[in-house]
Design a protein around this nucleic acid. Structure first.
Length: 469
RNA sequence: GGCGCCUUGGCGGAGUGGUUACGCAGAGGUCUGCAAAACCUUUUACACCGGUUCAAUUCCGGUAGGCGCCUCCA
């Protein structure tokens, strides 16, 4: 029923959970050393959509997303420093304070975007023991070696290392930009545990069998996903950039220990470009949610814009498209506000077949999260909703069910809008009376009055309908 | 240096070997007391050059341009 493109096989496959209806999902979360930008939100919203789609498909997703609050190295050139420590230096705080601040910011962003909360949001620093334990198991199996600055994973011991990303290790070796630094045995080898510098104390450091230090970035995902979701995940998801390094390394760390596949299905979200460029620190083009809100684009608009492109295509971010999304959302909201204006009597008018639109949308989402197609169906329903809903044969309930489905599946929060006040309703009734009496001056005056309260009124063959301007 | 991807109408963005994506915006029209909404029409849409085919935007090859990864990265 649910079909997903699997990076492992490079094909679209039917999802086959190990213990239906349970679906275990692990998604790579943020490194909390700076604000999240739209690029991050594109990815996270897409995983939120995955979980929503599974729920709408009567499955029971168990979703774990990690918080990386230690160990993510800035670069090879910045030896001994990780992103948290760097952020701390920048802001005159401890690494712990930095992590807390940006974790809170991230969770606030999730809430603003109406994302579902993962079942677990584990922090790397809360799972040092599990990580050490996993490294010990790798050590016992002979996959590690120790050099001056840490414990490393020997990728040559894992023959399948290059398979996932279809890496060419020979070319990697010959590549001009790969620096053969330190004492690594192979260019692709990576740190499992890094030692603290001899001359100073880090904000974040722990004792280990190999000496005081901190875990490498990759090991946390293996350790925490296995702790919360078992040896084999149903779905592991992350940004497309994680394929060649981070996810490759996760597989290499996990499968030798368990002897099982680390994840049956891998999903990767493509990047969003801003003015044709990837979002990066060096370009300084990372736009935050609060900046967008200042420009009049609510998180709800951002969310709709994210859904307008497919998660596997490289999408573009621009204010023009946000403007389009904003207008589109307003039309959708107007449709949702028809639920306050159900006509009780009469069977003159049959609205769209909302049940059919709902089926189309769900089928689109189940087909590798085809959000553009789902939105096309939603807009089809919206276009057919210009007249009020007339309640006969349960049509009103079908309409309400449809709106509930849209909110559940897409998270657009259409149902959070409130009804207008009794006074405003009276103004509309008065205006209809004035129109009947052909008192156009009073009619227009009442419409202006409503408009100043942000309420637009239009006249249909079935009476006046209001919407929020 | 290696690997891979992309190029669709004003903008964004799907998809397909022959038939309307969809959204936003512009122009004209029908309707309306006026609006709004809806509907209709509209500016040769599928980078360029070849090839395969009865038929290609959709498959193959090449050209140009853009991008991603191989290094931290959503």
């Amino acid at each position: 029923m649910m079909k997903i493109y699997n990076t492992l096989t490079r094909r679209i496959e039917a999802l086959q959970p190990q213990n239906t209806p349970l679906v275990t999902i692990y998604t790579c979360g943020p490194t909390v050393y700076d604000y999240s930008h739209v690029g991050h939100w594109f990815t996270y919203v897409r995983w939120d959509l995955l979980v929503r789609t599974l729920k709408a498909s009567d499955l029971q997703p168990k979703w774990v997303m990690n918080i990386t609050d230690v160990g993510h190295l800035v670069s090879d050139a910045d030896e001994g420093e990780d992103k948290l420590e760097k952020g701390a230096k920048r802001e005159g705080k401890t690494a712990w304070e930095v992590a807390k601040f940006y974790t809170d910011d991230f969770i606030r962003g999730m809430q603003e975007l109406n994302m579902l909360m993962p079942n677990e949001l584990p922090r790397a620093t809360d799972h040092i023991t599990e990580q050490i334990n996993l490294i010990q198991q790798l050590e016992a199996k002979g996959f590690t070696y120790i050099v001056d600055d840490g414990v490393y994973y020997d990728t040559s011991k894992f023959p399948a290392y290059a398979d996932f990303a279809k890496l060419d290790l020979e070319e990697l070796q010959a590549g001009a930009r790969v620096e053969l630094n330190t004492q690594k045995r192979n260019p692709a080898d990576f740190a499992l545990w890094k030692f603290s510098p001899k001359d100073r104390t880090r904000d974040m450091e722990w004792d280990s069998p190999w000496g005081k230090g901190f875990p490498g970035w990759h090991i946390e995902c293996s350790a925490m996903s296995m702790k919360y979701l078992g040896d084999t995940l149903d779905i592991h998801a992350g940004g497309i950039d994680h394929i060649p390094v981070h996810h490759t390394n996760e597989i290499a760390q996990s499968e030798p220990v368990t002897g099982k596949p680390f994840s049956n299905l891998w999903m990767h979200s493509n990047h969003v470009l801003v003015n044709g460029d990837k979002i990066s620190k060096s370009l300084g083009n990372g736009i935050r949610l609060d900046e967008l809100a200042e420009k009049g684009f609510s998180p709800q608009v951002v969310r709709l814009h994210i859904l307008e492109s497919h998660y596997r295509s490289q999408s573009k971010f621009s204010y023009d498209s946000l403007e389009a999304a904003k207008n589109r959302l307003q039309a959708l909201q107007a449709m949702a506000d028809l639920r306050w204006q159900i006509r009780e009597a009469g069977d003159e008018y049959a609205g769209p077949d909302y049940t059919e639109y709902q089926r189309t949308m769900l089928a689109a989402l189940q087909n590798d999260l085809d959000t553009p197609k789902a939105l096309a169906a939603l807009s089809g329903a919206e276009a057919g909703s210009s007249n009020p809903i007339v309640d006969f044969d349960g049509t009103a309930q079908e309409f309400r069910d449809f709106l509930q489905f849209v909110d559940d599946a897409l998270g657009l929060s259409l149902l959070t809008s409130k009804d207008i006040t009794p006074e405003q309703k009276q103004l509309i009734a008065d205006r209809e009376q004035a129109r009947t009496a052909k008192d156009w001056a009073r009619s227009d005056q009442l419409r202006d009055q409503l408009a100043s309260a942000g309420i637009a009124v239009r006249d249909t063959p079935f009476g006046s309908v209001w919407s929020r301007a």
